[in-house]
Design a protein around this nucleic acid. Sequence first.
DNA 1: CATGGTCTCATCTATGCGTTTGACAAGATC
DNA 2: GATCTTGTCAAACGCATAGATGAGACCATG
Lengths: 201, 201
Amino acid sequence: MQGTPKRPRRAPAPAPEERKLDPERSRRLLLEAAMDEFSEKGYAGARVQDIADRAGLNKQLITYHFGGKEGLYKELGRQWLRREAAFNDPALPLDQLVARYLEEAFADPRGTRLNAWCGLAGAVPEEDPEDLSDLRRRQAEGEIAEEIDPAMAMLLCVSMVAAPATMPHAVRRFFGADPDSPEFREHYADQLRRIVRRLAS
Amino acid sequence: MQGTPKRPRRAPAPAPEERKLDPERSRRLLLEAAMDEFSEKGYAGARVQDIADRAGLNKQLITYHFGGKEGLYKELGRQWLRREAAFNDPALPLDQLVARYLEEAFADPRGTRLNAWCGLAGAVPEEDPEDLSDLRRRQAEGEIAEEIDPAMAMLLCVSMVAAPATMPHAVRRFFGADPDSPEFREHYADQLRRIVRRLAS
DNA sequence: CATGGTCTCATCTATGCGTTTGACAAGATC
DNA sequence: GATCTTGTCAAACGCATAGATGAGACCATG
């Protein structure tokens, strides 16, 4: 739909010295490239040819290593689940914890965006109900007001951390700033901390 | 094989009551169906055949009336812009205003979802920077704390109103409830009001 | 009954994914 | 060293599908 049907540029140079038979490296490159492509265009919009181009590899390798587009996608999902767990640091105040997640999302929004695509498409593998015990503890300790459902606090944090990556147009409209600019990021992080602090009693 | 003159079989007199030439009705049905399809699967995932099926019309009519898939999509966007403006009621307290938007989003999440698809795909037509003067007034009147950027308040409201429609998986994970159930909706509306009230000084 | 806007059917073209084929390179095995 | 196995590339093909097109039928109206 949007204008130029241009393909992503091929990965830099062939890097001749590194040019070996290295299935592990190929897998890695393909997963990286797939992350780029899928997070950018979603599953339906992604093109295996473009993924191969980004990786600088032959598209046939996608079939060879992952059994096709869908296999690659699912592998990404599996990887995401593996990495997602255990980032929470119970010792940190909630506002700082959220700020850290935000930093993460700014540094690499691909996971965030991929998740958003999945949610919209309704294609979420199946996840266990989130463990909210930590949030409940925080509530007991006064970081979250009694009147607020910890689930609501959680959703708020997740939504607001994701927003700059998933709703860049809204950011531009409301803030009149480039979502990628350092100034905006700093401002947003500061504001988000204030919001989170306001969840406290 | 030359020709049996091939008179297309006459339709077996189907439901003559509704059987008319009514371009306005066709347009309406197609736009309705397109809203369903696009909001459900996004632009790349949508299928013109499915739109036609939903509308109960011939898919060629999409080309005829709108010049194709993209034309239909853009028409939807135009319609959205037209309807979106002027829903704000300055007299209402902020929390109630947001609750009203939420009600709207619950009743028909298609606009919300369509917007989310657009944002992710980066295909946003072009929107003027939002008018935040009303929010600034609310800030001056104490509905929003001085330390909070009205743009941030706006983004929070929009995000949280949209969340149940755009992140149903997150809702299920965090709340352990069906995003479509009346119980959840009531609970969520209540919680959102509390959150918004906490933006006040 | 001639006309023009509306609609249908069959077809066309492009694209995307996957597969096949055939060649080659590097290790491993004998 | 000969041979086998695995990883990689390139080009081409098959095949389904999606979106668009063309020719003509239908219908209302003047």
